[in-house]
Design a protein around this nucleic acid. Structure first.
Length: 377
DNA sequence: CCCTTCAGAGACCGGTAGTC
DNA sequence: GACTACCGGTCTCTGAAGGG
């Protein structure tokens, strides 16, 4: 029994022909790039609220009238790689960045920006916070870009405070606009699900109530529409696999469970060896304390004992803190302060996001990955 | 051979939320 | 207000990779 008529509708990069909720934003971006001499936009707001897709949609509509460069800073996030990407996209030919200094790269960018051309240049930096928080000042790439020529810029970030910081440094002499996009409401999420269901699923396989249920639940747990879409995709696949013709509440519950465990299962294998050990240590401490782990000295001590006997040894406490920060960035753990149960001072506690440490430990036990066997015992 | 970028990791230090 | 435990920023070093 198939209920999915178009799989691509659930693809993470799928862009529908009409945006159900953010059409106003798309129009505004389109108009401003078209009619303004130079447009610089800072776009902020929670993850999965339609920032990126709105910008992409606007670029789509501008199509041949501009040269657009889209840089996702979680993938392309060094001075060199960003310069290369921009130079290649604008000039439309390969650029050899190897061995070039930052100065040389900025000179090439300057030359490129000053070249007369008919089409406007639009450069989009998505997830720009990832670039700002990196050390070695890779964000200095913005200076040659902003200070020469008159390219248009859109900076997208989940963290609005990052945008304020950039606003002050980069756009001080440009007129720029800052916009915070609000999180999707349950009804917004419903509208988006409705569109995907109409395009991707057989009409008889779902009902309005199905979608309202998923929308409400998703809005409660995250407000990130990608979560809702993942849920809809998962429940459709489950329904198909069970040879059923209609999505039921049972299958939705099942899908919720799967989606929640899958995050950590997907990310964990990709982590560097030390980070894996840190995740395991934190999880073990969480189980021990009933839900949270004291990062130092407890979890660090556990990590140290694990790593001590392994070929690569253990890192210092300072490095451990940077690992914790990475885990926070990855959305695996969140951190809070508590007063120190042992007396003066305070401690930081880690709580897992969207996964059950005991189940995770069970799964991982004796199977932590390539070079680090034997850790679970 | 010397230059660059870049990531990873340690040393150091000032700041700060908490207790006494 | 002194004291404590801990965090985050920053500096430095190292080593890899890639040129000229």
């Amino acid at each position: 029994m198939t209920i999915i008529k178009d799989k691509s509708v659930f693809d993470i990069n799928y862009i529908p022909t009409e945006l159900p909720v953010r059409q106003d934003l798309v129009d505004e971006i389109f108009n401003k790039i078209t009619f303004m001499n130079r447009y610089v936009l800072f776009l902020g707001g929670m993850p999965g609220n339609g920032k990126t897709i709105s910008v992409k949609k606007a670029l789509d509509r501008l199509d041949r009238s501009v040269i657009d460069v889209y840089v996702n800073c979680s993938e392309i996030n060094s001075y060199t790689s960003i310069a290369k990407e921009i130079l290649e996209k604008v000039r439309n030919k390969p650029y050899n960045e190897k061995g070039k200094t930052r100065y040389q790269l900025s000179e090439d960018l300057k030359k490129m920006l000053k070249t007369k051309r008919d089409k406007k240049i639009v450069i989009v930096f998505d997830e720009v916070d990832k670039l700002i928080i990196k050390k070695d000042n890779h964000d200095e790439i913005f200076f040659p870009l902003v200070n020469h020529g008159n390219a248009n810029f859109i900076f997208i970030s989940n963290d609005a405070s990052i945008l304020s910081r950039m606003d002050g440094r980069i756009a001080s002499r440009l007129s720029s606009e800052k916009k915070i996009v609000e999180t999707y409401s349950p009804n917004d999420i419903y509208q988006i699900l409705l569109q995907r269901a109409e395009e991707g699923l057989i009409d008889t396989s779902w009902s309005i109530d199905t979608l309202i249920g998923i929308a409400k639940f998703s809005s409660d747990v995250s407000g990130d529409v990608r979560y809702a879409l993942k849920l809809l995709e998962r429940v459709s696949i489950l329904t198909e696999m069970n040879n059923e013709s209609k999505i039921t509440d049972e299958r939705i519950k099942e899908a919720i469970k799967e989606v929640q465990v899958s995050e950590i299962d997907e990310i964990f294998p990709t982590l560097p060896k030390h980070l894996k050990l840190v995740v395991v240590s934190l999880s073990l401490e969480c189980v021990k304390n009933g839900g949270f782990a004291i990062t130092y000295p407890n979890a660090y001590g556990v990590y140290r004992r694990f790593a001590r006997d392994l070929p690569f040894g253990f890192v210092g406490e300072r490095q451990f803190r940077d690992y914790l920060r990475s885990l926070e960035m990855l959305g695996l753990f969140e951190f809070q302060w508590r007063s120190n149960p042992k007396g003066q001072g305070r401690v930081r506690i880690a709580t897992p996001i969207n996964f059950e440490p005991s189940k995770f430990i069970e799964k991982i036990n004796g199977n932590i990955g390539d070079e680090t066997q034997g850790v679970g015992g």
